[in-house]
Design a protein around this nucleic acid. Structure first.
Lengths: 189, 189
DNA sequence: ACAATAAATGAGTGAGCAGTCGCTTATAGG
DNA sequence: CCTATAAGCGACTGCTCACTCATTTATTGT
């Protein structure tokens, strides 16, 4: 019986937030700047997100959801090497397509402002846990904690994305080299 | 002919800054809270650091200097494996002794508030660059960019420190496993 | 067309912040 | 001991920020 909220406006706010958070940092990106970059009034931002912290958490959740979406055609039944490589490539695709998102994710993770549920493992991580277990068997790392292996994998992928962002011309070789290193580490060659 | 500045007070301010930045985040740690945690007046903070940004940059530089100091007895003439392992262990020692510093370093690096000179490679990084080159030869990665290899090394070390912080009881095995992975990756077993 | 509802707006508000300043106090050199 | 100098102090200032609210506007169901 009333005016509905607009998904477009909500998305515009989230997109503007990514830009400003990446460029200025969480504590230095005012909600007023975010709303004006999104093309809405200051008050409007708060009908979509009750507080700035809620916006930050929601943004983090949305970014993770989109990663999950990107991984939709994950080859569940392929061998470990193929599955790991799939995640590796999709992750780097995303990082190149939206270089600011990675930065924002890192900022949010080290900000202490994320609720626990926002950080809960998503589909990709769950799948990686399983894959890591299998990879560990292959590499004789049976005793290793899968959580740790996933952390290492992510660290490598993020470092690679960071390097590629700074050296675009080395994109392909860095992807290959990076995965070679990861695979050597996990599976022992 | 006048009252000298006190190294103790300067250090107290830097120490208090680490605590508050780690707990609250850069944009949410007011200088007033830092000065009072350090036991000095608000104005005093600004006789030691002209602005908050200068404090942040100085803090980052000091943390790097202390890492260099920690690496003072680096075994320059030992073999690659020994040297890498030395850096690995010292890094993790520091991370366990001062868990908040690592967090603050990550925050500062992703904050966009560091001047370029604060981020210039320090002694350890320069040494790691050289070591990585040699490690790459050992592992048949001769074409690889040493900068990239160093980035990967740091990423692994930070991930390991993070994991150990969350799982103290797995400290020793994580150190071993982590280095095993790094060495496998770099040198190919 | 109309009434009911909620979105949209942007000036306003109170809190909190980085940095200042006039004053007090400690220290070094003479 | 005395004087010059700068450290130390904390109330204060001007500004910015997250969030509110009275009003206007768009949309929906009848």
């Amino acid at each position: 019986m009333a005016r509905p909220r607009s998904d477009k406006k909500r998305q515009a706010i989230l997109d503007a937030a990514v830009e400003l958070l990446a460029d200025r940092g969480i504590g230095y990106a005012p909600t007023s700047a975010i709303s004006s970059a999104a093309g809405v009034a200051e008050g409007t931002l708060f009908t979509y997100f009750k507080t700035k912290d809620e916006l930050l958490n929601e943004l983090y959740r949305e970014m993770r959801k989109e990663i999950d979406r990107e991984m939709a055609d994950y080859p569940f039944s392929a061998d470990v090497h193929t599955r790991l490589r799939f995640v590796w490539d999709r992750f780097l695709d995303m990082a190149e397509k939206y270089p600011k998102r990675l930065k924002v994710q890192q900022q949010l993770r080290s900000s202490g402002r994320l609720l626990k549920d926002a950080e809960a493992p998503n589909m990709v991580i769950k799948e990686l846990l399983q894959t890591s277990r299998e990879g560990a068997e292959v590499g004789g790392l049976d005793g290793a904690s899968p959580e740790y292996l996933v952390l290492m994998f992510r660290a490598q992928a993020e470092a690679t994305a960071e390097f590629i962002a700074a050296h675009r011309e080395m994109e392909l070789e860095s992807r290959e080299l990076g995965f070679k290193l990861v695979w050597r580490a996990l599976a022992g060659q």
